[in-house]
Computed example of a mutant assay.
Amino acid sequence: MPTVLETHIRNRFRVQPNHANNNDTLHGGNLMKWLDEVGAMSAMRFAGETCVTARVNELDFDRPIGIGDIALVEAYVYDAGRTSVDVDLRAWRENPRTGESEQTTESSFTFVAIDGDGRPVSVPELTAETEEERRLRERALANES
């Protein structure tokens, strides 16, 4: 049974001019794509199967990320059903010179594990063994309500 921390993934993306909107900040669609990609990696690490996006449960853009900044995306599985996997996602704006960061985005996506024919398959049970894993899971579950 995989644990919460075994599904934890962090990835960084350099925000280039071709990622920007008319305000010279990261286009929300680009950030959503990066959230989806990192979330799918986390879900697949948990399920041991290909996982596809079934639903964007929430997506809150609180602050912009500028051109030249780093978008730091973090994901971890916090809940699972029979074939579905819920992934908590957050993004930060990170200064590439100083490493200083500020959270910009909160989200959660649901993925479904599929077999080679595209049919849903069962996923394992998620465990939260450590205090940190329980805290992360509870934080994500609290955001659902």
Rank of each mutant, 00 (worst) to 15 (best):
R12D: 14
R14F: 15
R14H: 09
R14G: 03
N18Y: 14
H19Q: 13
D24W: 11
D24V: 03
T25Y: 11
T25G: 07
T25D: 13
G29M: 02
L35E: 07
L35Y: 08
D36L: 12
V38Y: 06
V38C: 10
A40H: 06
A40Y: 10
M41I: 05
M41H: 11
S42K: 05
M44R: 12
M44L: 02
M44T: 05
F46A: 02
G48F: 11
G48M: 08
E49L: 04
C51G: 08
T53P: 01
A54S: 12
N57C: 15
L59M: 12
L59Y: 08
F61E: 06
P64E: 14
I65C: 05
I67F: 01
G68D: 03
G68V: 01
G68E: 02
G68I: 01
D69M: 03
L72H: 09
L72P: 01
A75Q: 12
D79S: 11
D79H: 07
G81Y: 00
G81K: 00
R82H: 07
R82F: 01
T83K: 05
V85K: 01
V87T: 03
D88T: 04
W92N: 03
W92R: 04
E94W: 02
N95W: 09
P96G: 13
P96F: 09
P96T: 05
P96R: 07
G99Y: 10
E100A: 15
E102S: 11
T105G: 09
E106F: 09
E106C: 12
S107P: 04
S108Y: 13
F109C: 07
F111W: 01
I114F: 06
I114N: 06
I114G: 06
G116N: 15
D117A: 15
D117N: 10
G118D: 14
P120M: 07
V121M: 13
V121F: 13
E125S: 10
